[in-house]
Computed example of a mutant assay.
Amino acid sequence: MKFVIQRNQLIASVQDVMKAISSRTAIPILTGIKIDARNHGITLTGSDSDISIESYIPAEEEEMVYVEEITEGSIVLQAKYFSEIVRKLPEQTVEIEADSNLQVTIRSGKAEFNLNGQDAEEYPHLPKLQTDNSLELPTAVLKSMIKQTVFAVSTMETRPILTGVNVTLKDNKLLFTATDSHRLAVREMNIETVNMEEINVVIPGKSLNELNKILDDTDENVEISVTNNQVLFRAKHLNFLSRILDGNYPETSRLIPDQSKTTIHVKTKELLNTIDRASLLAKEEHNNVVRLTTKGNDLVEIIGNSPEIGKVTEEIAVSSIEGEELKISFSSKYMMDALKAMEADEVKIDFTGAMRPFIIRPEHDGSILQLILPVRTY
Rank of each mutant, 00 (worst) to 15 (best):
R38T: 13
I53P: 04
S52K: 02
I70Y: 00
K19Q: 13
E61R: 09
D48E: 06
R38D: 14
A37S: 13
I27K: 03
S49G: 14
E60T: 15
G41C: 01
T71L: 05
S55Y: 02
A59R: 13
R38E: 15
A59D: 08
S55M: 06
K34Q: 15
S55C: 13
D48N: 15
T43Y: 00
G32V: 02
E68A: 03
L30E: 05
V65R: 14
S22E: 02
E62K: 15
S23N: 03
E54Q: 15
A20H: 03
R38Q: 14
T43N: 04
T43S: 12
Y66S: 13
L30P: 03
I42K: 02
T43F: 04
E62C: 12
I53G: 13
A20K: 01
E62G: 15
I35T: 11
G32E: 08
E60W: 03
D36Y: 04
S47G: 05
A20S: 09
G32T: 07
D48L: 10
I57F: 11
N39L: 08
S47K: 06
I70H: 00
I35F: 12
S55Q: 14
E61H: 08
E60L: 14
S22T: 06
I27W: 05
A20W: 00
R38Y: 01
M64A: 11
S52H: 08
R24T: 03
I57R: 11
T25H: 01
E61V: 06
H40P: 00
A20N: 06
S52T: 14
T43E: 12
D48T: 02
L30T: 03
I27M: 01
S55H: 07
T45I: 10
Y56K: 11
I27S: 00
D36K: 15
G73Y: 00
G73F: 01
I29H: 10
S23M: 05
D36N: 15
Y56A: 12
Y66T: 02
E72L: 01
A59L: 10
S23A: 02
I57E: 11
H40Y: 09
T71M: 14
A26Q: 14
S55V: 10
E72G: 04
R38S: 14
E62I: 10
I53A: 07
A26R: 11
A59G: 13
G73I: 04
G46N: 14
T45G: 09
I53R: 12
E60Y: 04
P58I: 14
Y66D: 10
I35H: 08
E72P: 14
V67Y: 06
G41F: 01
I57C: 09
I35G: 05
T25V: 06
S22F: 00
G46S: 15
E54R: 11
E68R: 15
I33V: 15
S52D: 09
S47R: 05
G32F: 10
Y66F: 15
D50E: 14
A20E: 01
I33M: 10
S49F: 12
V67C: 09
H40G: 07
V65Q: 12
D50A: 15
M64F: 10
I35R: 09
N39R: 03
R24E: 07
H40T: 13
K34G: 03
S23I: 07
S23V: 07
I27L: 09
H40F: 13
G32C: 12
I35K: 07
V67R: 07
I42N: 04
T25M: 01
E72S: 08
L44G: 03
G41N: 00
K34T: 04
P58T: 13
